[in-house]
Each structure stands twice: as structure tokens, then as C-alpha cells.
């Protein structure tokens, strides 16, 4: 299974095995990674699964889709590499992916 590393705001790292076809948000929830709330359960409707994609990975992962962009846009702490992890599907291409978690979810 592809491995994904989540780095908390304080530097704590969590490397988890992620199931292909599930979302990056679900990989975090399934492995009890703290710092992701996912209040809407993966519907791109709350922006509480915000992650920042590591610079080496932004090209592979790509940018947000339209609905995701409008949700991210409400967050004053949005960065250029911000994504909602419920909108990122795990694939073998993402093996080794690193994402940073924000200090606070929106």
C-alpha cells in the first residue's frame, strides 16, 4: 500500500499505509492522525481536512478542483499548496507523499 506522511504543526510525523481508491482524508482518519476534523465526512463542504502539500509533491498531486477551491478560499490561512484531503484520491503515484497539517482547522 502507498505510504503517506502527515506532519503536524509541531513537527510530529505520522507515516501511514493508505488504501488505493480511498481519500487522503480517510487514510488520516483510519489511522487516527490528529489534526484533521473532516466535519462533513468527505463532501467538500466544510474545509476541515485542510493540508499543505510538500513542495516536491505539488506537481504530482495537482491543484484543487473548482468546488474545493471555493471552500479553500474562505480560509484566511490558505497557502498556495493548500488542498482539502477529502478531494485527493490515494493511488500508487502518491506512494511517499508528504503533507503538512495546519496549526488549526478552519
Amino acid at each position: 500500500m502507498p505510504k503517506i506522511t502527515f506532519i503536524e504543526h509541531d513537527g510530529t510525523q505520522h507515516t501511514v499505509d493508505a488504501e488505493v481508491g480511498k481519500t487522503v482524508m480517510q487514510a488520516a482518519m483510519d489511522n487516527l492522525v490528529p489534526g484533521i476534523d473532516a466535519d462533513c465526512g468527505g463532501e467538500c463542504s466544510c474545509a476541515t481536512c485542510h493540508v499543505m502539500v510538500n513542495a516536491d509533491w505539488t506537481g504530482t498531486v495537482g491543484g484543487p478542483n473548482e468546488a474545493e477551491d471555493s471552500m479553500l478560499d474562505l480560509n484566511p490561512e490558505r497557502a498556495a499548496n493548500s488542498r482539502l484531503s477529502c478531494q485527493m484520491t490515494v493511488s500508487d503515484d502518491l506512494d511517499g507523499l508528504i503533507v503538512d497539517l495546519p496549526e488549526f482547522q478552519f
Binding site: S70, D73, E77, F104, Q105, F106
Partner: peptide
């Protein structure tokens, strides 16, 4: 979106 963004920062987590 434009109007909301003007005031959103006041209750954003960093300010809290």
C-alpha cells in the same frame, strides 16, 4: 465571498 473574506480573519483560529 468578497464581503465574507473582509471580516473572516477576526474569528479565524489564529486570532482566537
Amino acid at each position: 465571498d468578497e464581503q465574507r473574506k473582509t471580516v473572516q480573519g477576526s474569528v479565524a483560529p489564529a486570532n482566537l
